[in-house]
């Protein structure tokens, strides 16, 4: 049966990108413990609107853990305390009556705050644009079964491809490094036969774009802990290996595969 929680929220409020922000305390009373974290914010917002206070802006969309829109720091952890769970899938029964919850937006120099808890994550799109694809113009593809993909390779690629691009890895990283996000896409494409021709240019290109925006990895492993899809740290090692290979091979000059 549903019970109700009374909580104290400390929410980061910031009216705009250039305006100063601060924590504002709100009481969240009578929150059904069946509700999700975002529904808890919905209820708080309804109450704020009633009191003529502008509602808290927070990122969200699909609310089923796949679109990657949502994500805030909850008590100092990206997506909150539950492992492998995006903010939208975190439910209030994981909290106790009387808890104080601190809610802060993702932080990184490349993620400027737009308003309240919403940040601009467009550098992640730029990393993908710089090489996170296999170039196959529509209509050029041959029969799908002409290229065999070992089941294990497909599964491993899928493990990496499960990334939802929420940015929790970057937000959780003490260095604001983009390694886990970038390496997941690299492994997805570089581990498949279809991805081989562009493999080394892809890794150089994506790494260089990543380094234009994000910090340097020091292998803390916070990213993988924060990841709602449990993307593995191994992919970062694979990326590092591929990056060195790409530099050494210099395919543009030597045409090695």
């Amino acid at each position: 049966m549903s019970t109700e929680l009374n909580l104290t929220l400390q929410v980061w409020r910031q009216p705009g990108p250039d305006a100063p922000g601060s924590f504002v305390t709100y009481e969240a009373k009578g929150i059904p413990d069946d509700s999700s974290f975002l529904e808890m914010l919905d209820i708080v917002n309804e109450n704020l609107i009633e009191r003529d206070v502008e509602p808290i802006e927070f990122p969200h969309d699909c609310r089923e853990g796949i679109c990657g829109t949502c994500g805030v720091m909850i008590n100092g952890r990206a997506h909150g305390q539950e492992k492998a769970t995006a903010t939208c899938q975190l439910h209030m029964r994981k909290f106790n009556d009387g808890d104080t919850i601190v809610i802060e937006p993702w932080r990184a120099a490349a993620f400027p705050v737009i308003k309240d808890l919403i940040v601009d994550r467009s550098p992640m799109d730029k990393i993908i644009a710089s090489g996170g694809y296999i170039y196959a113009p529509t209509g050029t593809a041959g029969e799908a079964n002409e290229t065999l993909v070992p089941k294990e390779a497909a599964e491993s690629a899928m493990d990496a491809a499960a990334c939802i691009g929420c940015g929790a890895c970057i937000a959780a990283c003490p260095n604001s490094a983009g390694q886990l996000f970038t390496s997941a896409k690299l492994w997805h494409l570089n581990s498949l036969p279809q991805g081989q021709p562009e493999r080394f240019q892809r890794v150089e290109s994506m790494v260089h774009t990543m380094e234009q925006f994000f910090g340097a990895c020091t292998n803390h492993g916070e990213c993988a802990e924060a990841c709602p899809k449990e993307i593995s740290l191994d992919f970062i090692a694979y990326m590092n290996a591929d990056y060195m290979k790409s530099k050494i091979k210099n395919r543009a000059k030597s045409a090695q595969i």
Binding site: G21, S22, N75, E104, R107, A109, P174, F214
Partner: peptide
């Protein structure tokens, strides 16, 4: 690299809770 990370970081105003680090 430390300088690079320092420039990339945007410190949290609230407390951080580290898991793996």
């Amino acid at each position: 690299l430390s300088m690079l990370s320092r420039k990339s970081d945007n410190a949290y105003a609230g407390k951080r809770d580290f898991l793996a680090a």
